[in-house]
Simulated scan of single mutants.
Amino acid sequence: MELALADIINLDKNPLNDGAFRKACKRTLDETGALVIKEFLKPALIPLLQQEGKDNQHLAYYTTNKHNVYLTENDDNHSDSHPKNRTVTSSKGCITTDQIPNNSVLHSLYDASEFRDFLCDVLGEQALYEYADPLSSINLHYADEGQELGWHYDNSSFAITLMVQSPREGGIFEYVKDARDADNGDMNYAMTGNILDGDIDTESLSMEPGTLVLFRGRNSMHRVTPTIGEQTRMLVVLAYNTQPNVSLSESARMTFFGRLK
């Protein structure tokens, strides 16, 4: 049964339909590249989502990938030490939209028109659409002990995530804002290399369970440090498109999900 938004979101703290609240959120995202909304979910839902995640973790497809920060093939025109040819490791498990239970609060939140309207205002988009394929709209990511996301830039202009369970230690989201300007062709290889060398101070986001995060990662280099301890980090990615009838590429679906449908 589809839940009302008031049953999902702590609207007293996060009045999504309030114009001033929306403007404040947009200003924060525009100025810092990251919007962290703590206590977004109703507290009673957090243990339910955590148990749901544990119950379905056996369905997860686990991958370990070596990649460069641009998520592209290496470039023979540059040396092995160039950022285009330096590799990092990303490893995680993932369950897909069709593996999220039909009665999950995640479907109700993802589909809620008021939630999408709020996201459109804050992101500056005209409309947001679900993926046309059955796998890519809602993904629950698992990071067991030692698993991490290596440094990278996103291909998309925004990401929307919801923290379900934090690890005991580690699993920290670190980023460097505006490390490049891809839209204007300024790739800033020198700074990217310095970040990989650990010579640049990073910022981090605090994400307790129930926290919603909007992040612009196209130009801000970011990673998630390895999980430490036996408690799995569980994070939901709510993925939308700015155009209708878009599917994640077949190569990406095979890489991340191990299947096409």
Rank of each mutant, 00 (worst) to 15 (best):
T202V: 13
L49E: 02
V69G: 04
R259K: 12
Y142G: 10
G146R: 00
R116N: 09
F173W: 08
S247M: 01
Y240K: 00
L205D: 08
Y131F: 09
S206F: 15
I37Q: 07
N68V: 01
L128P: 03
T227N: 14
R223K: 14
E230M: 14
L149D: 13
G198L: 10
G185D: 00
Y70S: 03
F173I: 09
R253G: 07
Y129N: 02
P47R: 01
P47Q: 04
Y61G: 10
S90C: 04
A20T: 03
L49Y: 00
I9V: 07
R223Y: 12
A182C: 08
T202Q: 14
L45M: 03
Y70K: 06
I37K: 11
C25T: 10
F158E: 14
A24R: 14
Y70W: 10
L214I: 07
D183P: 04
F215I: 04
T242P: 01
T161M: 10
N10Y: 06
T242R: 08
L41D: 01
C94N: 15
S249G: 06
F215E: 04
P47A: 01
T211C: 07
D12Q: 09
D186G: 01
H78A: 13
I195L: 06
L135S: 00
V176F: 05
E39I: 05
T192F: 06
E39N: 15
G198M: 09
T242N: 08
Q147F: 05
E2P: 08
N139I: 02
